[in-house]
Structures are given as structure tokens and as C-alpha cells.
Nucleic acid binder design. Structure first.
Length: 980
RNA sequence: GCCCCCGUAGCCCAAUCGGCAGAGGCAGGCCCCUUAAAAGGGUCACAGUGUGGGUUCGAGUCCCACCGGGGGCACCA
């Protein structure tokens, strides 16, 4: 390893240890380094962290014992920059828990792999011609070395990378499962596509045009079947990013319409792309959040993203055109306000716009058309619409975000409001989006602020159908969206007047259903997942296109479909603003690879391979399954192995969904990765490939290590390490080379010149010190600043522990067989009890504090200054309790204490109840809430006795001055409060 | 604009069911060890919990409003 400090000159090592006078066996960076490398080697040689599987290729059923625990860190991307001190925070946290659980008899699975496909390696390849695999594998090696030096207890056999052919073969296999499945709405689950074909063939399901299945041509049959698949080709509008040369998922586009990566403009284009039908699972993805032990914030983000809303679909017949023509269908969450619908709006791209627009402006348009607002000054509706569409298309997403002034144009058509028969004008406006609901709305300006704004701008009538609250209008209120009784809402058959919103919604929906004018409807914001990318460094699709231009899935026997070698790794990129360009993936240039001859059931035919690749999310959708059984060549994971590590556990909860026991990572994956992985997992569950319904039973968001960065007068970042802080008149001032600099707080990054690496901290203090420092600065969920100068505190503590147990001159144990005194035993057992609770709760900072407290006590009573060494019966538990946090020094001390096996599998001390209860208890005595005195009573004194003792106490008697207390509160073991 | 999280010594953080505001670390003062130094040992001080109300015998903890910081969503019908 490149960071081996033993290669330093001896003089330098001595210098690092503080000079000539330093005892030879003082615990410093050099000694720590030696100990750490020694134990890391030993753990690796002995396979200390190998977790046994119950079956599959690694079956060791006789080794499987204790309760199983599957701990998981979010899949890191092995970036070329390597780790900084912020990255391993979560990894160390899970390692501490894993080590604690392993010591307490659990079968702990903890592994680490790499999400290794992705843009940086490809971009580097484009620039330098180096194959992305070369770069990626070098980065992984560097990453593994950095992780190893931290002493993480991973089962190294289980490490996988998404770029391994052996791994992506199964990613392709899962794609085939998804492709060969459809969502059965009645059963609310995915089923094999063959069952759908059987239903059609047997007549159990009728074809779209009613013909018999056998009358359809093969092409027609395939078209129908393909339209049901969970992975399908779509020509719908997608996010095309010319600057990157690829299309992007909705989730990868920022709110202002730019690519999350690279910040290039993104355009909506109709392109043929692979989609995943995640919307089929929208309802389950929302509902099952209730069964997960996840942070509320992440659940809220997913609910928000899926955006389930209940409402109604309502038909508005268009006036005066062919009665057979379709009505305008709208989705509304407020059907109760139907009587207030005074106009309608279609999205500019809505297909009905051209159909309903009459050739001429209808009579009366001129009167409404003040300043040409309605017609845009155009001679005919068609011209007005064309001009408006052109103007809308020119507007970027950003313009639309920033400029919320309502624009639109009258289509010349009217539609009939089904509740009151009124003809209301139909507009085209870009504040209605084609992608949500039906792309058309009924506008109720009285109860919707956007509609109010539009109505005001276009001189449209406003009818209130909910009585606003008192003073709402006089205070300048416009649209009233609150709760109130319905008004102005009655026809000959139904009256909503007086009803509350919920009651009115139910009543009008029933009426609409009865009239055939509408139905209750649940709508989602979630869209299907765009699954293809025009990149080289990703998983190839296991798909080929036939001569008719239809995609055909390859059989499993054709897997893996390996990436071909090519010369140019770049997709064709364009000027970032060149919207009218076409994606051209790099694989389309791999001529020999492209054309294949296959027999897919119709004899040997020529096919052309799919040239898109999968998005980076694909591998991270299922890597946690592969850790379970990484060597299995027959299945992506052995069924029994999956059930053992991830299966449902009804002893936890009746509706336990199963999944990873603890998944730790940053909150930045709240929607993307976590939603996609849940979707894949549910498909695999429906198809019977896994027994668990959710991938991650419990999720924990760790905080971030943040850092200060400093800029000089020109705004340039200066090296944070060289900045000097001083107090001037009590105010902190920061200078660099004598010039004042400005401090900011945030991320750690190369460009901010404030990166600190675990390598340099490990070298200066040792990995154990680094681990302890990171764990003791706060609880796992809290973000905190990095402070290099504070690290020394953690090292001092380890040094003191070492010095208490080891003679710094000889390196021999200075532990004695003396019996510890009672105070020491009490503190020891209190510490044991506390540490158990703290580790379980991931409160490593307080666990560390308790161990420091115990060691401080030992220093005082049995430290190097005293004649007696530390009693073995205290020294051993201290070492064992320290082991999860600082495993190397603990192993070394354990062996100095005479044990020749690793402590990784325990024992772990258990608190003795008899030392947890004290003989006497001191009670503060409050009078009216203020502490006035104290008493000490036997611990087993009952409440009456405590009360009597408190009232009899000298100072209290004096204060009472003969009065009777109004009330005496005795809180057992806490305090007494006398109210007078 | 809407939703979520967080405000405790100079700094990072503790405080069980509402029960004496301090466990631990950094920085600081003093003392010891040392020819000297410190990444050695010891010891000390420092806040009344962002602000204002309320509930309670008792509030850092519960409720309401506001202020400050962070995050998410945002023309989603």
C-alpha cells in the first residue's frame, strides 16, 4: 500500500512521536500504524468477517448461528479523486454497529461494492482514449485500499462492481424479467407476459378492436403485447440534452430545465426510447411507505414525488361539432367546484385543440376580445393557435418558471359544463401541462389562484362556489382555496349548497357517475422512467431489432451481452442549444458488434443490436441482492439465501415487508435511487424471484462532514489549512499569508481547497483515532464541521487507555488480578449498560464519552502513578467495549492481555444488575420548584419514608415554619418537590 | 408560496417518561513533570437552553406565535 509509514526514515518517525524522551511503547501514530496493518492483515487472512450463508454456492449451514443482521452502506461511485474525510462517516458508523452486533452473537453481513458505470470514466476516456474499464478498475483499487486502511469489517468476498461482466449479466437478466412482464390491474401485481398472451389466445381478454386473437397478424399481436410490457419503447416526449448528447430521466432534470450533470439546457423532444412502467406501481410505492422504518422526511419526499391525488375525471362535450367527437376530459381534485367552472384550458400540445377549433371566430368573440387578448389579433382560430404554440415552444422552462404571467388564446370553441349546461369558452394556455392529468382543465377562478389570474387577465367571469371565510374578501383575498360551505351550486337534480368540501365532492362525484359524465379518479405526478441513455459506459440492453423494426428480447442463453471495444467512446454531442438534433449513441458505430444472426424461434435471421445503454441507476437497483450470493452462476441470488437475509419477519410487525435491516446513506438519494430500487424489488417480488416486498426495511440518513473554505479579496479559494484564526476585540478574524480572507461553510472539495483525506489523518494519528474522532463529534444523523486540530483529543484518550494497560517502557501488560473496589465496579457496570444502549441506538458519541469517563476513573485509581495495575476484571470489559469504535488497538490490547484469538466475535461484557442499583439515593428537595436542600435515604425507602425524611430535614422545617405543605411530590430516585 | 428538520458554554455535542442544565472532546486559565518543549499529568472557570406567551408543583423537553439556519417541492389542476 502506498501509505505505508514504516518506510519513513527512523528519525522522522521518532520526531512524529515527540522526540528523544518518548517511551518506546507509547501509543502514537507509528505504533498505531504498525498495529493497524498487523490486524488488517490478520483479519483478511483469517476471513474474520466472512458471513456464512445457509445455502447456495457458499452454503455453510452449520456455521449459521445467531440472529442475522444485514447492514448496508449506499453504493459508492469510485471517483478518481479518492476519499475525503467526509465519505467514510457512514461506512464507519455501520462498521461500528456491525462489530458490536458481531460481538454480541449476531450473524452480520456487511459488504462494500462499487457503482462503477458512469459518466466521469467515460468522459476521461473521451479525452484521453483510455478505456473506461482501465480507469474504473484503477479507481476501485485505490478506493479499496483507502477503505481497508480504515479497518472496516467487510466480507471482502462479497464485493461486486456493476461493471463486472458477471454482475451486469444479471442486471440484463432482471431487465428481461421486467420486459417479459405486464401489470395486472385486477390482481395489482406484475405477471409473466406469457400469461397475458394466453388470456388473449383463450379469449379471456378481448383485443382492442374486438377481433379474435387468432385473426390478428403476428405483428398485430406483438404490438398489443408490447403495449403491456413493464419495459417498453415509447415515442413520447423525452428530455433531450444536446450538450451531453443523451436523453435524461425527469429526475435528472432540474426545476429550471437543465441537466443535473453539466448544467446544459434540456429540450422536450419526441424520441424513441426505452421506458420502465414505474407508474403501474405508483399506488403501492406510496402505500407501502407506511410499512417502512424510514425518516419521515424521505417518506415525505417520495410521497411528494409520486404525487398521488384523489379527484374526478369529468367530460365536457364540445358545443356545435360532430356529436360523435370526443368530449374534453379533465382531471380535477375539486369536483365540488364544478358549478364555478367558467372556462376551460387545453395544453398547447393537446391533440383535441386542432379538432375543436372552428374555421372562423364565433359571433361575439369581438366583444370579449379587448385589445386582441382572446384572438391574439389573428384572423382565424387556427392562426391564433399556431402563433401561440410557436411562442410557447420558444419559451424555455426557465422563462416559464420565472414569468408566471398568464398567457393563452381562445380556440373559438365552447364546451358544455355538465352540471349546469352552460357553454363555456375553451382556451389554449401553457399554464396547463400536457404531461399531467389529461392535459386539460376546467377553470374555477373562484377557488384556484392560477385560474383567477387567467380569468382576470382575459375578462372571464368568476363565480364563487365556496363561501370564503369572514373578512377574506375585504382583506383583498382572491381565489378562496380554504374550507367552507358550498354556494351557488345547484341544478334541478342536485344541490351542494351548504355542504362542506369533502361531502360536496362525494355528492357531485356520485351524480357525475350516475349521469355518465365522470368518475372518481386517482392521479399521480409520477411518470414512467426513461431508461435508455446514449452512452458507452453502461449496461448494453439484451435486445435486438428485427427487420420489421421491432425490438426482440434475447434469450437468457445469449447473456451476457458484452460491451464491444470501440475507438470513440463519445456520443455525438452538439451545441447545447441545438434542440433539433438527434441522439447518436457510441455503440451505433460498433459495426461488427451491431449486426447479429440469431435464431429466435423463426429460424436464423439478421438482427441489429440495441445501441442504447442502461442508466447508472440500473446496477444500484439490485446490488444489495448480489452481495448475498455474489458467486452464484445459476441465479442472481439463491432463493433460500434471499429469504434468510431479506425475508419478511412477522415477529417485527404483522405487515413486515422484509428487506435490509439497516441502510445508511445520505439524504441525496431520497427519490431517485430509493424509488427505482423499490420498483425493481417489487417487480421481482411479484414474479416470485424474491420473498421480500421492499428492499430496505430501515433507512437511516447520516449527516455530512462539512468544512470551512476561505476566499481572498479576489474571491479565489486559498488553502484552508494555512489560514490563521485570531480573536480581535472578541471577533474572529481569518488571515492567509497576512491578508484577510473570508470564511464560508459547506462542502469539502478540491476546488474549495479544503480537502482533508483519511490517509493523511491516519498517517498522523492512526486509523483508530480517526474513527473515534468521527464517531465522537456527534450522533450519526448530525452534520458537523471537520476540525483537524480536535482530532488530537481522540488520540490522547487512546494513549491514556494504552498507558493504563500497557507499560510504556517495556510494552508488557500492567494489568493486575486485584479485585476492583466497589466504586469502580459500579461505574464499570453502569458503563456496560449504557454502552449497550448507545451502540444499539447508533449514539456512538455518548458511548465514547462513557468509555472516556470510565478510563479517566481508572487513570485516577489504578493509573501509571499508582502501585496497583488496572484490575483485569475491569481492563478486559473496557477493551471489549472499545473494540467496535477502535478495533485495531482493542485487538492488540486483547492480545497483550493474553488472549490469542480475535475479539471480533465477542465476548461482549454484560452488566451485572447488582452494581446498577445503589444502596442509597440522594434526593434534592425543592420548595416550589427551587432546590433548597438534599437528603440521602436508603435506596429501598418507600415514597412515604422519603416524603417524611424530606419534611423532617432541618432547613426544610425552618422554611416551612410550621405551615402545612399544599402538596408534596416525590419522584422515585429523582427528587422531592414541596409546594407551599 | 407550500412542506420537513434544527437552534443548549467561544466551538462540536450530553441531559431516560416533563424532575438538580453537563457526560465527553477542542480551544482557554492555573499548577505539576521537564534543562527545555509538548500530541505528558492534574486542575479550574465558562451557558440557564434563539425570542415572547401558555400548560404544569416543576419545561431544554409539551402547546402557540415569531426570529434565525438548513433541506425538499414549486403553474401538478
Amino acid at each position: 500500500m502506498s501509505t505505508d509509514t514504516t518506510t519513513q526514515p527512523a528519525a522522522e518517525r521518532a520526531g512524529a512521536e515527540g522526540g528523544q524522551g518518548t517511551p518506546p511503547f507509547r501509543y502514537g501514530a507509528a505504533l498505531a500504524g504498525d498495529i493497524e496493518r498487523k490486524w488488517q492483515d490478520r483479519w483478511e487472512t483469517e476471513g474474520t468477517f466472512h458471513a456464512p450463508n445457509p445455502s447456495g454456492p457458499w452454503a455453510e449451514p452449520d456455521q449459521v448461528s445467531g440472529e442475522k443482521v444485514y447492514l448496508l452502506d449506499m453504493f459508492p461511485y469510485p471517483s478518481g479523486a479518492g476519499l475525503h474525510v467526509g465519505h467514510p462517516l457512514g461506512f464507519i458508523g455501520t462498521d461500528v454497529l456491525g462489530r458490536y452486533l458481531r460481538m454480541t452473537g449476531h450473524n452480520v453481513l456487511h459488504a462494500m461494492g462499487f457503482d462503477a458505470f458512469g459518466l466521469p470514466a467515460e468522459q476521461y476516456a473521451v479525452q484521453t482514449g483510455t478505456h473506461p474499464r482501465t480507469t474504473t478498475e484503477a479507481n476501485i483499487e485505490r478506493y479499496k485500499a483507502q477503505l481497508r486502511q480504515l479497518g472496516l469489517g467487510h466480507d471482502q468476498r462479497r464485493s461486486v462492481a456493476t461493471t463486472d461482466v458477471d454482475f451486469y449479466r444479471w442486471t440484463q437478466w432482471i431487465f428481461l424479467q421486467i420486459y417479459n412482464a405486464w401489470y395486472d390491474e385486477d390482481a395489482q401485481k406484475a405477471r409473466p407476459i406469457s400469461e397475458l398472451e394466453a388470456e388473449f389466445a383463450q379469449g379471456g381478454r378481448s383485443t382492442p378492436d374486438g377481433r379474435d386473437w387468432s385473426e390478428l397478424t403476428g405483428a398485430e399481436q406483438r404490438e398489443i403485447i408490447d403495449s403491456y410490457r413493464l419495459a417498453y419503447i415509447s415515442e413520447a416526449p423525452v428530455n433531450w440534452c444536446p450538450g451531453l448528447g443523451t436523453v435524461l430521466a425527469n429526475e435528472e432534470v432540474t426545476a429550471d430545465g437543465r441537466s443535473e450533470r453539466g448544467n446544459f439546457p434540456v429540450f422536450r423532444r419526441n424520441l424513441k426510447q426505452w421506458m420502465m412502467r414505474i407508474t403501474a406501481y405508483a399506488d403501492r410505492l406510496v402505500s407501502d411507505l407506511d410499512r417502512l422504518d424510514w425518516p419521515e422526511s424521505v417518506k415525505a419526499m417520495q410521497r411528494n414525488w409520486i404525487g398521488r391525488s384523489q379527484g374526478a375525471r369529468v367530460q365536457f362535450p364540445v358545443v356545435g361539432v360532430d356529436p360523435a367527437a370526443p368530449s374534453i376530459e379533465v382531471f380535477t381534485t375539486r369536483p365540488d367546484t364544478l358549478f364555478g367552472a367558467t372556462y376551460m384550458v387545453l395544453a398547447p400540445e393537446h391533440p383535441l385543440v386542432d379538432e375543436i377549433a372552428p374555421a372562423e371566430w364565433p359571433a361575439g368573440t369581438a366583444e370579449s376580445d379587448v385589445d386582441g387578448r382572446w384572438t391574439g389579433g389573428a384572423a382565424t382560430p387556427a392562426e391564433a393557435i399556431a402563433a401561440y404554440r410557436a411562442a410557447a415552444a420558444r419559451k424555455s422552462e426557465l422563462d416559464r418558471q420565472e414569468n408566471k404571467d398568464k398567457t393563452g388564446v381562445f380556440t373559438g370553441a365552447y364546451a358544455t359544463n355538465p352540471v349546469n349546461g352552460q357553454a363555456i369558452p375553451v382556451f389554449v394556455a401553457d399554464y396547463v401541462l400536457m404531461g399531467y392529468g389529461t392535459g386539460a382543465i376546467m377553470a374555477v377562478p373562484g377557488q384556484d389562484q392560477r385560474d383567477w389570474d387567467f380569468a382576470t387577465a382575459f375578462g372571464l367571469p368568476i363565480v364563487r362556489t365556496v363561501q370564503p371565510s369572514e373578512g377574506f374578501e375585504s382583506a383583498g383575498g382572491e381565489a378562496f382555496t380554504g374550507e367552507g360551505p358550498a354556494i351557488n351550486s345547484a341544478n334541478d337534480e342536485i344541490s351542494l349548497n351548504g355542504m362542506g368540501v369533502a361531502e360536496a365532492k362525494a355528492a357531485i362525484t356520485d351524480w357525475l357517475v350516475a349521469k355518465g359524465a365522470g368518475s372518481a379518479q386517482t392521479q399521480y405526478k409520477l411518470r414512467d422512467w426513461l431508461f435508455s441513455r446514449q452512452r458507452y459506459w453502461g449496461e448494453p440492453f439484451p435486445v435486438a431489432w428485427d427487420a420489421d423494426g421491432r425490438p426482440v428480447a434475447l434469450p437468457e442463453s445469449e447473456l451476457p451481452v458484452e460491451l464491444p471495444e470501440i475507438d470513440d467512446y463519445s456520443p455525438k454531442t452538439y451545441d447545447p442549444d441545438a434542440a433539433d438534433t438527434e441522439p447518436e449513441p457510441p455503440l451505433s458505430r460498433a459495426q461488427e458488434w451491431l449486426d447479429v444472426e440469431l435464431d429466435l424461434g423463426n429460424g436464423l435471421q439478421r438482427y441489429r443490436r440495441e445501441t442504447n445503454t442502461m442508466p447508472q441507476w440500473a446496477g444500484s437497483c439490485w446490488y444489495y441482492l448480489r452481495y448475498l450470493d455474489p458467486q452464484n452462476s445459476d441465479r442472481f441470488v439463491d432463493a433460500e439465501v434471499e429469504r434468510y437475509w431479506l425475508g419478511k419477519d412477522t415477529t417485527r410487525a404483522a405487515d413486515d415487508p422484509g428487506g435490509v435491516d439497516l441502510y445508511v446513506g445520505g439524504v441525496e438519494h431520497a427519490v431517485l435511487h430509493l424509488l427505482y430500487a423499490r420498483f425493481w424489488h417489487k417487480v421481482l417480488f411479484d414474479l416470485g424471484h424474491v420473498s421480500s416486498e421492499e428492499p430496505f426495511r430501515r433507512l437511516f440518513n447520516q449527516g455530512y462532514i462539512q468544512a470551512y473554505a476561505y476566499t481572498d479579496a479576489r474571491g479565489t479559494y486559498v488553502p484552508a489549512e494555512e489560514v490563521v484564526e485570531e480573536l480581535v476585540d472578541g471577533e474572529p478574524r481569518f488571515t492567509w499569508n497576512g491578508q484577510p480572507v473570508n470564511r464560508e461553510y459547506g462542502k469539502m472539495g478540491k476546488s474549495l481547497r479544503n480537502v482533508v483525506t483519511p490517509d493523511e489523518i491516519s498517517e498522523r494519528y492512526g486509523a483508530d483515532t480517526f474513527r473515534l474522532y468521527e464517531m465522537s463529534t456527534g450522533p450519526m444523523e448530525v452534520s458537523r464541521p471537520w476540525s483537524t486540530r480536535d482530532v488530537v483529543g481522540s488520540q490522547r484518550f487512546l494513549q491514556r487507555v494504552w498507558r493504563n494497560l500497557v507499560d510504556e517502557q517495556t510494552g508488557e501488560s500492567r494489568v493486575s488480578d486485584a479485585e476492583p473496589d466497589t466504586d469502580t465496579l459500579r461505574l464499570l457496570h453502569r458503563t456496560i449498560a449504557g454502552v449497550h444502549a448507545d451502540y444499539t441506538a447508533l449514539h456512538y458519541n455518548t458511548a465514547a464519552a462513557k468509555l472516556i469517563e470510565l478510563n479517566n476513573h481508572l487513570t485516577k485509581v489504578y493509573g501509571p502513578g499508582s502501585q496497583t495495575g488496572v484490575p483485569r476484571s475491569v481492563a478486559e470489559p473496557l477493551v471489549l467495549m472499545l473494540a467496535p469504535l477502535t478495533p485495531h488497538i482493542a485487538e492488540e490490547l486483547w492480545s497483550v492481555l493474553g488472549h490469542d484469538t480475535s475479539l471480533a466475535h465477542g465476548p461482549f461484557p454484560v452488566a451485572d444488575e447488582q452494581y446498577l442499583v445503589a444502596d442509597t439515593v440522594e434526593y434534592p428537595i425543592q420548595v416550589n420548584g427551587k432546590v433548597r436542600s438534599r437528603i440521602t435515604v436508603p435506596a429501598d425507602a418507600d415514597l412515604e419514608a422519603v416524603k417524611a425524611a424530606a419534611l423532617g430535614e432541618e432547613k426544610i422545617v425552618a422554611m416551612m415554619d410550621g405551615r402545612e405543605p399544599r402538596k408534596v411530590i416525590v419522584v422515585p430516585n429523582r427528587l422531592v418537590n414541596i409546594v407551599i
